[in-house]
């Protein structure tokens, strides 16, 4: 056997043995409290109908011995699945491998379907079906809709646009699918033009207008604040000059735009460093999950 394969096999066996040991000790198990739920039918038809089921609430291992608390197989299985998937993703750092490929395939499938399910229930059902057919919606999925609600015909417009879009699947006349896209791209262009000009152009200019020289209330020169203000204004103006397209960066403009690029580099270096701590915190969060929640170390 090749040396690397031998080392990996030993590591895997050792790791597996350790996991078995931890599991037998009782780590990596999830306990839940049973909470029976009794619900009265909202519209009793003749006899009072009472529905009963059990809700489960996750509890810490410390409450293991209490009367309503029991071991939950599905959640424990879930915990182990989550832990192995986490390790599988981390294995990508060493290189592409079958375990990562398998996990990635599962992830893509689950996340694609998840997005569709969410869109179905939050948009199509709540915002279209319930708005256009409130009566039918009330007796199927949304019993809390007001019984006097009337259909909101404004929602026919997005329905029509969506049908036009789906015409794309038809062999003939699929060009009509461009119409809803054109509508929304036009809408995006118009809305974003206004919002960006207002907050990111006029708004930023408003925050930047400040005096070059600042005086205290007794008339003395606050030269530190003045220096800071001046640096600020010089920074903004030199970066703006860097972004000019119609002037070549020659002569005076070259030096000012170099200054601008230096300001930008300071900005990027600072942002980069600022984020490092946050990312390391994310990693430590996953390690806590693996070591604390799963292995119980």
């Amino acid at each position: 056997m090749k040396q690397s394969t031998l080392i990996w096999t030993i590591l895997m066996v050792a790791g597996g043995a350790f996991l078995l040991f931890q599991a037998s000790k009782g780590n990596g198990r999830v306990y839940v409290r049973e909470i029976p739920v009794e619900a009265q039918a909202s519209q009793p038809e003749g006899e009072e109908q009472v529905y009963r089921w059990t809700r489960y609430q996750q509890v810490t291992e410390a409450e293991k011995g209490e009367p309503d608390v029991r071991f939950s197989l599905s959640r424990t299985l879930g915990l182990w699945v989550a832990a192995f998937s986490t390790l599988a993703i981390f294995s990508f750092l060493y290189g592409d491998n079958p375990i990562y490929k398998f996990t990635e395939s599962v992830f893509v499938g689950v996340s694609a379907a998840y997005a569709m399910v969410v869109a179905f229930w939050t948009e199509i059902m709540t915002n279209l079906y319930a708005k256009l057919l409130p009566g039918l919606a009330r007796i199927t999925f949304y019993p809390d809709i007001d019984s006097t609600a009337r259909p909101d015909y404004l929602y026919l417009i997005p329905l029509v646009l969506s049908i036009l879009l789906l015409w794309r699947l038809s062999p003939k006349g699929s060009w009509i699918a461009r119409w809803p896209l054109a509508f929304f791209i036009g809408a995006t262009a118009g809305i974003r033009l206004i919002s960006y000009l207002e907050t990111d152009f006029v708004g930023q200019l408003q925050s930047t207008v400040m005096p070059f020289i600042v005086f205290a209330s007794d008339g003395s020169l606050l030269w530190i604040k003045s220096l800071r203000n001046t640096i600020f204004i010089v920074g903004v103006v030199s970066c703006m000059i860097y972004f000019f397209f119609s002037i070549e960066h020659e002569g005076v403009v070259k030096y000012i735009s170099r200054l601008g690029i230096w300001f930008l580099m300071v900005t990027f270096g600072a942002s980069f460093a600022y984020t490092v701590m946050g990312r390391i915190a994310l990693l430590s969060g996953r390690l806590v999950f693996l070591f604390n929640d799963w292995l119980g170390i």
């Binding site: 993703i89 990635e104 992830f107 893509v108 996340s111 694609a112 998840y114 997005a115």
Partner: peptide, 12 residues
């Protein structure tokens, strides 16, 4: 198309 979700997309 892969998936809407940010990290599923980038994993793929």
């Amino acid at each position: 198309y892969i998936t809407d979700e940010q990290f599923g997309y980038v994993a793929s």
